[in-house]
């Protein structure tokens, strides 16, 4: 079972997990998501909460529910591109906030990031 942090609603944390799976390609466009109950068992979450996660993702256009068939990842390339962009921004702003909180300047952050990427070259090979 995977852990959730305690300050954020679980349905949002689960939604973010699914979004990451989509961006990583673990869930492909048009692929069916597990049923509410199966997703509940997999993630150790109340089925009511999973239902809410699916509704939330549907409202964002990321998934669509087909009557009697289940919930599917959107096949709309624009939606997926937007999702990719917004996850990127979110991750970067988390990182930058943390760096600024420790007192690093913009220049230091950029230089540090460049160094890191050069040193780590090849270490983050695409799967």
């Amino acid at each position: 079972m995977t852990d959730f942090d305690s300050a954020t609603p679980i349905y949002l944390q689960l939604a973010e997990r699914i979004q990451r799976q989509i961006v990583r390609g673990d869930l492909k466009p048009g692929e069916k998501l597990p049923s509410v109950r199966d997703m509940g068992v997999q993630s150790g979450v109340n089925p009511n909460t999973v239902q809410r996660t699916y509704r939330e993702l549907e409202a964002m256009g990321i998934v669509e529910t087909r009557r009697g068939q289940g919930t599917f990842v959107s096949e709309n390339p624009e939606v997926l591109q937007t999702l990719r962009e917004s996850l990127k921004r979110a991750e970067i702003s988390r990182f930058v906030e943390g760096m600024k909180a420790m007192g690093f300047s913009d220049a230091e952050i950029i230089a540090g990031l460049k160094d890191h990427l050069t040193e780590a070259e090849g270490r983050y090979e695409d799967d």
Binding site: D5, S6, A7, T8, P9, I10, Y11, T49, R52
Partner: peptide
């Protein structure tokens, strides 16, 4: 409601 508690007060149950 457990999710509202997280949403409105940013608290998990133990806290």
């Amino acid at each position: 409601n457990v999710e509202e508690l997280r949403d409105r007060e940013n608290l998990g149950l133990v806290e």
